[in-house]
Design a protein around this nucleic acid. Structure first.
Lengths: 236, 236
DNA sequence: ATAACCAATCTGGTTAACCAATTTTTTGAA
DNA sequence: TTCAAAAAATTGGTTAACCAGATTGGTTAT
């Protein structure tokens, strides 16, 4: 699954259509966990679409854990009942494109947790990595250059140090979209970049000192501009 | 991106190899944002792999916002500098398979936020949907049947009511894996399922009353068994 | 009657050929 | 010499043919 591209393309629509058809088929045939789906070829013929389209739809459902393809054998309904199957497919079909507000809101949630965990769990190696990204950011800003990338890498380094692989993955997922929107809305200016150097340093020091509450507090302050931008208030 | 399958397959390895090669190429040729990558055919020949493999690798990097393919034109480096590009590709290559602990830890984080947001933002329609899943769960448990699915749908209904599409997507992403692991470790027994009915009702009432703090508190209590399981302590 | 075996068939996965749109090069008239 | 128009080459996307392994049903030897 992708955290879909923001534009709902035509192929997206046909894919959703196929997913709906597969859902109907599972209900109609009363397929239960472990049952085999008709072959890709049969599905493509029955639905009147190409086999590639069917494969894409199956892969998407496989990503969400609803189906399981086994080579040279078939595609099987995962170990999940028809009720949850229906509910989740409906959810998947109605997945909204992520809006900027929800992206930022979620980013803040993830980062505040990540910085706490990083404070508790950081190894010397990860701490060193954070320090490197910190220095790189400072150097870039002080030389007057744009440092959006280095800022990003500092935050990703913290996520990596959190020791939570799921958190890290999610951060990697939303970061590119955040960057794109940041560029679009011109959130960062030079002045803020200079101020952020000190904020970054304080966050780093708190992580180094293994003080999770302080680290979270400093990260919160660092995000104030984002809060303002999205909610027009200092706290949520 | 997928939140990769837990087994690192062979094709996974060759894909990571190709991603590494693409990274080296970008560095070697000093490609900057907007520059065009060599065509898929040239890359497949240069790397000695099939064009399909190259396409997969490109699509993965496209998912993380690092590349952008334009039909009948070419594949381009996204509007992100070489520094962030290198850092993010390294992160992507080193992405760990999500372990159960990090999944649960992240799930709790997401749900506690979701239940607060749902309390604040729930519409009558979403509230009704939550109520439906609540009743379905109760009925299933009281009739002595397994109700893992209905439990899941209750939690997903709350995520949907949070009004945060990114949060909702992430919940959908980790839920299947949680279910699989739950089944594996036999976390839920009949007794807990009955107790959970009351907990669900209290959560629902708090959301209905638009009391975010109470809702979060009740959700926290509901998760106590998970905390115990993962940390051997009642709170984190 | 049963178990072992084998070949025909069916499966998802992979590869190569094809397509339409785009870009680049060529061409020829002004 | 210039520039527009057309043709050739290149692009990512799509489709159809092919592959190796799993399944299945029938057959045969025990």
């Amino acid at each position: 699954m992708k955290l879909e591209s923001l534009i709902v393309s035509d192929s997206q629509k046909v894919q959703n259509g196929i997913i709906s058809k597969i859902k109907e088929l599972i209900n109609y045939k009363n397929l239960e966990p472990g049952d085999k789906l008709p072959s890709e070829r049969m599905l493509s013929e029955r639905f009147g679409v190409s086999r590639g389209n069917v494969r894409e739809a199956i892969q998407k459902l496989e990503f969400y854990g609803l189906l399981k393809s086994i080579p040279q054998s078939g595609t099987f309904v995962a170990n999940i009942g028809v009720v949850a199957m229906n509910g989740m497919i409906d959810d998947i079909l109605r997945l909204d494109s992520p809006d900027f507000k929800s992206l930022v809101e979620t980013r803040i949630l993830l980062e505040l947790k990540a910085v706490k965990l990083a404070s508790l769990r950081r190894t010397e190696e990860y701490l060193k990595h954070i320090k490197e990204t910190l220095d790189a950011y400072e150097q870039k800003v002080l030389s007057g250059e744009d440092a959006v990338q280095e800022d990003l890498l500092f935050h990703l380094a913290i996520a990596k140090a959190s020791g939570n692989s799921t958190l890290n993955t999610f951060m990697l997922t939303i970061t590119p979209q955040i960057i794109i929107d940041f560029g679009k809305y011109h959130v960062c200016d030079k002045n803020q970049a200079v101020l952020a150097i000190e904020e970054h340093k304080q966050i780093y020091q708190a992580i180094k000192a293994q003080n999770p509450d302080l680290a979270k507090q400093k990260m919160k302050e660092h995000f104030n501009v984002l809060y303002q931008y999205c909610y027009n208030s200092k706290s949520v």
